[in-house]
Write a protein that binds this DNA or RNA. Structure first.
Length: 563
RNA sequence: UGGGGAUUGGUGUAACGGUAGCACGGCUGACUCUGGAUCAGUUAGUCAAGGUUCGAAUCCUUGAUCCCCAGCCA
């Protein structure tokens, strides 16, 4: 490159990390972590966090990113989610081998930390009910009141805590609380709960525990135990930082630096595990991997590439501003990637029969087609051509509007890689009056080249040979919601009120070129002039199923809209 | 009316007292056997009001608006 390309400036987190490395904090080491709770599938918002955490680690010499499952609530977590999360992270392109951790592995240490705090007089067992604790906590504007158990002798708390662990107390009968300040303006500091009784078996520790640490008591210490240097989390934990600081300080253990950033929001979709779960449970979509879902599993099935998601995450940046990123940026990222890598094929979604009346019956030609004009190394293939073809119904207009360049009565267009054809007749179904087929003539001098008289046409259509085409089902997806911000419920609506009723359209009688007969599940293609498509796992030997990942930009659609 | 954050074109993001830049989107045009892609041009912004300064998106003051917090969820 002739001129020095200006480096994109690092986001504020990378700047902080760089400064820490520069001045030798943590001996120059960088250890980050991605800490999902295994209670749902990963979505595009998690992808942002994954790219940030693994990215920051990779950019620093010797940097490491841990995958840690925050599995502190056995009532909501399941092994199937652990598996799905690991699969999604690997698919996204990140390696956590040798660095897979579980908060549940620290249960014994966490228990000992809790005992230590009781011994120091910094924690106590409280037997107020959940409801009472809430009332004692006060409100945003009024201070709370001390629990009557706050001055319980240390020995008594120690004994009670031991009995909680031993299963001698019922669920909800007692909790362990930190003794901080019931009048703190930060509600997180009003004697927060550290442990609760949950006589529920845990997916990894079985029935060894009948008490479990709450997130706030587990998270910071887990980071500490793992030697995390930079604990990157979302904005809502900013208020919790003083609490984490307090625990770490009282315990006198390694203190990671927590930095908060804004979570990702994307227009016309929802990025919240709870809401995505609701869509699944209420049957608005067909599952976590429904191609309309912004889950990594859904996007994978839809045809998104890992690279396109990573690029998207890098482009949205990292700040503390609560933003709503335009879904067009996501769509651009995947087009950008697929444009360079997806082989082109011809597929007719809504077939209209075309008979070339002057083309010999029974004749078949094999025409050479380019697999990817962006990448000549991808070579060429042969596409069969014959007398009866299918073209796209929308590529013909009996009464063409202004600026419509495609086929119309008496008009000539090119068939991609083949001949110039001219429409000479429109044949209707006598009963329905619908256009049944088109009769066209072809110019034998125009095969793969401009005819000798130099005639030009304004449109090139894709097509398939009727006798050679393969049948397929194509699923067209549109945005899941009709509102840019479906979760804005200030007008009293629920986000499910804004679901797009047309987010899925299934086309059952599509015809695709024969080279696709061997297409394997997950393979991605550009259907020329239409968009990027990917083979769905529902495909069977008897029937291919394609998902539309994203349409090509369609300038005719824009012209038509403004006509 | 407690505490914690935030505010730069339509959207996202840079600029760290010295020319408000980049990307997406929009709009023009060129080119084209994908109305794709590509290329070129264009559009449009510092929340407000004061102050400091030769000079302010950046520093100070006041105000406005938005987000988060009253789970034994994470």
């Amino acid at each position: 490159m002739a001129t020095t390309e200006s480096k994109p400036s690092a986001d504020f987190i990378r700047q902080i990390v760089a400064e820490d490395v520069r001045c030798g904090r943590n001996a120059g080491r960088v250890v980050t972590r991605f800490p999902p709770e295994p209670n749902g599938y990963l979505h595009i918002g998690h992808a942002k966090s994954i790219c940030l955490n693994f990215g920051v680690a990779a950019e620093n010499a010797g940097g490491v990113c841990h995958l840690r499952f925050d599995d502190t609530n056995p009532t909501r977590e399941e092994p199937k989610y652990v598996q799905a999360i690991k699969e999604d992270i690997r698919w996204l392109g990140f390696d956590f081998s040798g660095h897979e951790y579980y908060a549940s592995d620290y249960f014994q240490e966490l228990y000992e930390y809790a005992v230590e705090l009781i011994r120091k007089g910094k924690a106590y067992v409280c037997q107020l009910s959940a409801e009472e604790i809430r009332r004692y906590r006060g409100t945003l504007t009024e201070p709370g009141r001390d629990s009557p158990n706050r001055n319980r002798p240390i020995q008594e708390s120690l004994d009670l805590f031991r009995r909680m662990r031993a299963g001698e107390l019922a669920d909800g009968a007692a909790v362990l609380r930190a003794m901080i300040d019931m009048a703190s303006p930060n509600l997180n500091l009003r004697d927060p709960v550290m442990y609760r009784i949950l006589k529920v078996p845990h997916q990894r520790t079985g029935d060894r525990w009948s008490i479990y640490p709450v997130y706030d008591f587990a998270h910071g210490q887990s980071d500490s135990i793992e030697g995390i240097t930079h604990s990157l989390c979302t904005l809502e934990f900013e208020d919790h930082r003083p609490l984490y600081d307090w625990y770490l300080h009282e315990l006198g253990i390694h203190h990671p630096r927590q930095i908060e950033f804004a979570r990702l929001n994307v227009s016309f979709t929802v990025v919240s595990k709870r809401k995505l779960l609701q869509l699944v449970e209420e049957g608005h979509v067909q599952g976590w991997d429904d191609p309309r879902m912004p889950t990594l599993a859904g996007m994978r099935r839809r045809g998104y590439t890992p690279a396109s998601i990573r690029h998207f995450c890098n482009r949205v940046g990292v700040t503390k501003f609560n933003s709503l990123t335009d879904i067009a940026l996501l769509e651009h990222s995947v087009r950008d990637d697929l444009n360079q890598h997806a082989p082109r094929v011809m597929a007719v979604l809504r077939p209209l029969r075309v008979v070339l009346v002057d083309y010999p019956e029974g004749r078949t030609e094999q025409l050479e087609a380019v697999n990817n004009p962006q990448d000549p190394a991808m070579g060429t293939r042969r596409v069969p051509f014959s007398r009866v073809l299918y073209i796209e119904r929308e590529d013909f207009r009996e009464d063409p509007p202004r600026k419509f360049f495609r086929l119309a009565p008496g008009r000539e267009v090119r068939l991609r890689y083949a001949y110039l054809i001219k429409c000479v007749d429109v044949v209707r179904d006598e009963e329905t009056g619908e256009i049944a087929e088109l009769h066209c003539t072809f110019d034998p001098e125009s095969r793969g080249r401009t005819p000798p008289d130099g005639r030009k046409v304004k449109a090139t259509l894709h097509w398939v040979s009727a006798a050679h085409a393969v049948g397929a089902e194509v699923r067209l997806y549109d945005r899941l919601f009709v509102r840019p911000n479906p979760t804005d419920e200030k007008d009293g609506t629920d986000f499910t009120d804004h679901l797009n009723p047309h987010s899925l359209e299934v086309l059952g009688s599509c015809r695709v070129e024969p080279s696709l007969a061997q297409a394997t599940v997950g393979a991605r293609y550009q259907f020329e002039r239409q968009g990027y498509f990917c083979v769905d796992p529902d495909s069977a030997p008897e029937g291919l199923v394609f998902n539309r990942t994203v349409p090509l930009r369609d300038s005719w659609a824009k012209i038509e809209k403004n006509l």
